[in-house]
Amino acid sequence: MFNRNYKEKTIESVLFSVSALTVVILLLICLFLFRDSLLLFKETSLLDFLTGKFWYPTSVNRQFGLLPLFFGSLIVTAGAILFAVPLGIASAIYISEIAHPKVADALKPFIEILAGIPSVVFGFFGLVILVPAVQNTFNLPTGQTALTGSIMLGIMALPTIITISEDAISSVPSTIKQGSLALGATRWQTIYKVIVPAALSGISAAVMLGMGRAIGETMTLMMVTGNTAVIPSFPGGILDPVRTMTATIALEMGEVPQGSAHFHALFAVGTVLFTITFLINLIADLIKNRYRFKVD
């Protein structure tokens, strides 16, 4: 008996240690990103990095200004969200409230497949189909633009937005729905006046997570946005090439000498990216929890 209890305790401690490892990993990520980022500030001040307008990492007068990359990420992500949110929420409403259950069941695998397609395949598709299409439609010197990135990114963010919104919409208690229908409201009135407002926090969380997915995407953007590190003008810049934070890291890391200022600058960009997605996830979590509380 003593032996068995000892064994049980040991197993529990091992399992605990493994799950606590996730916290350690997160801390290590912070530690290593910060450590290599801090070394940049021997050369450039934090303020110059955060507010610098020029990213010239290899010229003689090298400058490590975050803004062109930050706004590059921002404009592409904003475009993606503008495109994906209405389409995603509409599809989620269709699947959970309108479609015949058999149609809904048939549609779900499509969304799973969309979520499963590797980003490099999206990028490839964008490169061979969408880039020339954008170029011809708008008569541009190149089709590798922020718009092209936004469209591809929007398609990629759809599964996240659809699945989580659909969860939120389906978990609205049917009593609330029936209450509205019983008052003589049509199904559509019930959907937009009762169901969607009741699911709003869940839908907002879906949008946040879709945004997190979009801002962290790398390969697709590297392949279709042209990678020009210039602050985009607004709104005309949507048709210019841009370069995002993620693409910068992936593009330049291969060619920088390890330990150089440029190397550390890329880590600093990574730290900014990590901080942004960390905040987005935190907000999504908070919204989601409030929503659970409300339903209870």
Binding site: L26, L33, L209, T246, I249, M253, N281
Partner: peptide, 19 residues
């Protein structure tokens, strides 16, 4: 920690793996 790891961009994991 798990939620945050799940939402961290893959390129950041790449940087971490490199470091």
């Amino acid at each position: 920690a798990i939620n945050n790891l799940a939402g961290t961009p893959s390129v950041v994991f790449g940087l971490f793996g490199l470091a």
